[in-house]
Write a protein that binds this DNA or RNA. Sequence first.
DNA 1: TTTATTTTTGAACCGTAATTCATTTATAAT
DNA 2: ATTATAAATGAATTACGGTTCAAAAATAAA
Lengths: 195, 195
Amino acid sequence: MRRKEGNKEQDIISAAIEVFAKDGYHEAKISKIAELANVATGSVYLYFESKEVLLVKIFSDLWIKLISLVKTINERDDLSSTEKLEGFIDTVFDVFTANSKLALLFVKEQPHFLQEKDNKLNILYNNFLEIGEKILDDGVNNNSFNKNLDKKITKNFIYGGVRHLLHLWALSPDEYPLNKVRQDIKYIVKKGITK
Amino acid sequence: MRRKEGNKEQDIISAAIEVFAKDGYHEAKISKIAELANVATGSVYLYFESKEVLLVKIFSDLWIKLISLVKTINERDDLSSTEKLEGFIDTVFDVFTANSKLALLFVKEQPHFLQEKDNKLNILYNNFLEIGEKILDDGVNNNSFNKNLDKKITKNFIYGGVRHLLHLWALSPDEYPLNKVRQDIKYIVKKGITK
DNA sequence: TTTATTTTTGAACCGTAATTCATTTATAAT
DNA sequence: ATTATAAATGAATTACGGTTCAAAAATAAA
């Protein structure tokens, strides 16, 4: 018997993130991913049944990680609502800061998934947003946040703004220093929604 | 001689907006666009030299319209900085409210263009954002807006938030009534950035 | 009516790249 | 060593859909 050497699956995933991010999912070629991962074209299919499955794997890993992180924050009872909200925003920045290619891929391709309500990715994505909404909810209930703002709208406004800035940062890190970006966003959000 | 009947070019554009919005640019088929426009597949190529040119035409028409509208607002000297900013946001909502398919197309495909800095579309897009930045600039200078916020960041945060909510609205208009969306966004922005 | 010219058609063409699979390679077991 | 089996290869296959183009249709001019 022969056993697998190295971690080809991970190599392929990393390569795919890079190529998908640069070229966009549809223009990305499996052969290029394989080359970057140092495997043969056909090997990609030993680990992923199709190009699409590979993309979905990347996204679902990402969501699972994000969900776990923000869940932890939300469960901490030493944090105020405002601090939880800041922590939520920080988490997103932290995860993507660690991998700008993933950030790029995320902003470019995620919009295409929002359409079909009940695919795996949308379910995860909604789990994630629900936690954000819970934080906003509690903040309203304990009188920290403004009651008159719709929570779904507020949460998605923040989400969209954060996502767009991550995109710009991923394209030109120097023009959008993440520290300043985070700081400004948190300032606007806090000032904009607290009473 | 034979003369053209109807306005096939416009029919094709409208059909393309719809099909691109629903299926995404890459999955959209010329044959489907042609069918929806009531022309033969080949006819699309009498009006547009390629699928990509057709997409670019749609986007550039959109940007040209938006630029003209926000320019007008910015030139009015009876408006305060805050009112101009509100007017800017309103303009975007107005244009997309009139055509939710276009909104959907815009949010799905625009991210793919940001990469290549100097294509036609990015130049238009930057013209548009520059006007937004000018409004923010003036607001800072006349002491309406907070000096400590970076203008590029602020403008893009707002832009991203607005875009994402337009996306959600285009997918489920009932869940995201645009009036409430506009109202909340303008509230957060005003409160978030004014001194 | 006939002819010339422009518009339109849609099936065939063709390039591309995802996917497959016969073959080769590497290792574990005997 | 030899064999069996799993892993890996990459050229061949195949599907797909954008684009082309020869033929048809429509109208204006003669």
